[in-house]
Design a protein around this nucleic acid. Structure first.
Lengths: 119, 119, 119, 119
DNA sequence: GTGGTCTAGACCACT
DNA sequence: GTGGTCTAGACCACG
């Protein structure tokens, strides 16, 4: 069973932070396509949160089609590689945007930001 | 007088967050080289912190040679453009590193991270 | 616990005088390399100053790398003998300079000042 | 008329500090052997002290035979070169002692203190 | 009015 | 108990 380190700040709802961190765990391959996730209770213990909170986070991921449920068997990462790629690329775009925004904040243009990266 | 919006989280000391935000304000040109900063007390009001806390943050910036003090006159941004550039480029390097780290976390390599940026 | 006698004049900030006297205590070996300093509060009592003032002085010494902090344990003299020697020799140079300056003031040249010492 | 800059701290009697500073002015040659000193009133103005205080300081110097008074004419530096030399050498000894004491305080021996001086 | 210093007193995390 | 942070409030020198 793949163990994850969860970390939270007090600024935003815990379940949203769980969603983010689980999403990262999945697209990064920590939980590969088609693999079975630890049980809700196990995940809740890892994260030191209430199982209900973890359940809420997983429901979010499911409605996103990143995971699916097999009735009596547990939750699995989607086998749809395209879906995974799409989410991953969405996250990547966000990070790119964050990078550009932060650079803009200190007065560095988009073009310069790209040059900086290559050093 | 240039007004800044300060924002804090409860995770790290306020004075350190002040240092960071003032540093950004300076390298971004919000307070240009050689210009006079608002008084310690004014800045403290803007940030809604105790003047002593603001004083501590400014002392940090001064020991970093980003600002200097004219005893009874106020505090000024350094006129040393090279110093400013050095700090700015230091901040930029940090952001670049953060970007690569975040991308690595979702399983995207350095090379791919650079490509992503150009889209 | 090594007790120090602190003395102040009213000309200069107390915390700077604390820095000087603590620095001397350390390089002289009153607080040996690697040894634990009395707690901030104890030192404050010894010096009859507010703990915050002592804290400020110790922060100065720490940024000078003469001491380091173990978070919940206390503050310790650096183990870096070279650092200690460097500081000590810096202080010595200052004293030499003071001596020459004072001798010059009463009209005694550098060369004569050296001779005087050997008597 | 030779002008002197007087400086005082609040720790010791002003007149004693005047004595010290005048003594230095004399042995250093600022007021050469046999030369006439500015009047008590002039000296008092220079030092921004009450003429009585200056008078007391000069009396001290006179009892030390560093200066002498010509009734209606003013005060003069002694013409006795040997006296001047003796005072000067007394001051020098004091400075040497101070130097050794200060070096001892930071843990440097007499022998090492002499070596330090030659660098 | 400016920055700087100092005290008193409180609260925090960590172990 | 340790160091660290923060606030409130006061006083100082300087010009």
């Amino acid at each position: 069973m793949q163990v994850i380190q969860f970390k939270f700040d007090n600024e935003r709802p815990i379940y949203l932070q769980l969603v983010e961190q689980l999403r990262i765990a999945i697209v990064s391959g920590a939980y590969p396509a088609g693999s079975r996730l630890p049980s809700v209770r196990e995940l809740a213990v890892m994260a030191k949160v209430n199982p209900n909170t973890m359940q809420k986070a997983l429901a979010e991921l499911e409605s996103d089609q990143l995971i699916f449920t097999e009735r009596t068997n547990g939750k699995y990462v989607t086998k749809d590689q395209r879906r995974l790629e799409k989410i991953k690329s969405g996250l990547a775009k966000e990070l790119v945007q964050n990078y550009f925004d932060a650079m803009a904040k200190i007065g560095i243009t988009r073009a310069e930001s790209i040059k900086y990266l290559q050093k």
